[in-house]
């Protein structure tokens, strides 16, 4: 055995010794608990690459299901150089950091006007981002002391949205579109962005952000908006983006923490 330095780019899981590949796993099978079910669990784990698979715990959950805990080594290897991550182009900030950045950089609250436009009555998206109740364990933008939220709700006409954005001196306009029948979400968004371009000189136009489960996040140019957020976007991501797009960084070092939560693409 050579004592050469191990190749740190090629890895497998670590239990208590380098290269042992030990993995723990738990799952449920729709089988009553008996010897056959335990065998099925072991076979299943073996097929997943655990060899030998050790079924260390099996427990009936009602008459029709069995819960298993399985330990065992896997033999797969990962080359870290093969990992592709989509870098978020803005740092993810905690609410406190968002508030601090706005306070320092803008010296006034950041104003966000939100709405569902057109005939869309599905406020689930905009409410998840704006309401204090929030989404995925994160509080909505209303929770941020330095963000002023004006939520216009559902079925807002585009001219009304433009008017409200002007009246509230919106820094950003958030629009949510859920209904996609006959590409309504795309038409509505284009109409909205065109209206804002017409109503505001370029340097005064609020940042236009649109979100919904069926948007292509890369279609910003086509739709005439500054940012598109897809399914599963959290309020914290939106708040962080708004800060990076709207808040000038003062001379002092920003409180940004490095983005450690990278998403695999």
């Amino acid at each position: 055995m050579s004592k050469a330095k191990p190749n740190r780019n090629i890895v497998r899981p670590y239990g208590d010794a380098t290269g042992d590949g030990m993995v723990q796993m738990s799952f449920t099978l729709p089988l009553p608990h008996d010897k056959r079910a335990e065998g099925a669990a072991q076979l299943f784990a073996t097929k997943m690459g655990m060899d030998p698979a050790m079924v260390v715990h099996a427990k009936a959950m009602g008459p029709d299901f069995t819960f298993f805990v399985v330990y065992g080594p896997v033999h797969h290897l990962v080359d870290v150089r093969d990992v592709v991550v989509q870098e978020r182009d803005y740092p993810l900030l905690a609410p406190k950091e968002v508030n601090a950045a706005i306070k320092r950089g803008l010296r006034r609250p950041l104003v966000v006007v939100g709405a569902c436009i057109g005939t869309d009555a599905h406020t689930v998206g905009i409410d998840a981002i704006l309401n204090i109740k929030g989404f995925a364990g994160e509080k909505g933008l209303e929770y941020y002391s330095e963000i002023t939220v004006v939520n216009l709700g559902a079925q807002v006409a585009v001219p009304e949205l433009v008017e409200q954005a002007r009246a509230h001196k919106a820094d950003a306009v958030l629009v949510s579109q859920v209904v996609t029948q006959r590409d309504a979400h795309l038409h509505n968004t284009k109409e909205m962005s065109a209206a804002f371009r017409e109503a505001f000189p370029a340097e005064r136009r609020p940042l236009l952000v649109v979100g919904g489960p069926r948007f292509d996040e890369l279609a910003t140019a086509e739709l005439g908006v500054d940012r598109i957020f897809g399914r599963g976007t959290t309020p914290g991501e939106v708040a962080s983006y708004l800060v990076s797009a709207l808040v000038p960084v003062p001379d002092a070092r920003p409180a940004n923490r490095p983005d450690t939560r990278k998403k695999a693409s």
């Binding site: 799952f27 959950m61 819960f67 995925a136």
Partner: peptide, 13 residues
């Protein structure tokens, strides 16, 4: 909590 809506096994545990 905050991961998935509860699975059968989560509830049992």
């Amino acid at each position: 909590e905050a991961v998935v809506t509860p699975w059968l096994s989560d509830r049992d545990l």
